[in-house]
Amino acid sequence: MTTLALQAHAVSHSFGSVPVLRGLNCDLAPGCAAAIIGSNGSGKSTLVRIFAGLLKPTAGSMVLFGDSRIDRRRLGLLTHQTFLYRNLTARENLEFYAALYGMRNPPQIAAEWIERIGLEALAAYRVRTISRGNEQRLAIARALIANPDLLIMDEPFTALDVAGAELVKGLIAESMERGCAVVLTAHSGATLTAIACERYELSRGRLAADKGT
């Protein structure tokens, strides 16, 4: 029995007197992907922040990798903010994050990722000058750079064209084969059905397993 990558138990969160999440349960095994489908304002982003340890839930427990202290080295996070420095080039951004995760030889790692996401032509351009779709590719490379064991992605297919979406699906599948657990969120299930082994519906602060479709 391997340890679960993510265990959320009875997680609730409220801002002031406004409840956002009410008693969520979610378990995720390594190599598995969970899709969380919810409309705007359903609490997806709050849930993502709680999963990533950026927000402490008002009640309930969150455990990553079977340890109450998060090993942040093993966590990859993608949100609707790309976490990229606009005045650094694509390559410099990746080099910086590789160094931040204490990896050896950041320039080489950055170069490899630039190639994988097909941004060779844009590597020396500042992020502020490249398109949103290419920025999203770069953001995904950034989240994956330290080969995480848990990948949390908030609407990963935002702004991506068909080729980009295929590329990202490929990267996610590759990570899962490696044993990485993945949490994905989206407005609608269509894009995620192919990848996810479990689907959840997030509505009115509650998470329901969705076995349909």
Binding site: A52, G53, L54, D71, R72, R73, L75, L77, T79, Q81, T82, F83, L84, Y85, R86, Y97, L100, Y101, G102, R142
Partner: peptide, 17 residues
């Protein structure tokens, strides 16, 4: 303020630093 730009402060916070 260099970290406020694109939410990069959160990237630092979730990183192992």
């Amino acid at each position: 303020s260099s970290e406020r730009d694109n939410g990069t402060i959160y990237a630092l916070l979730v990183s192992p630093v």
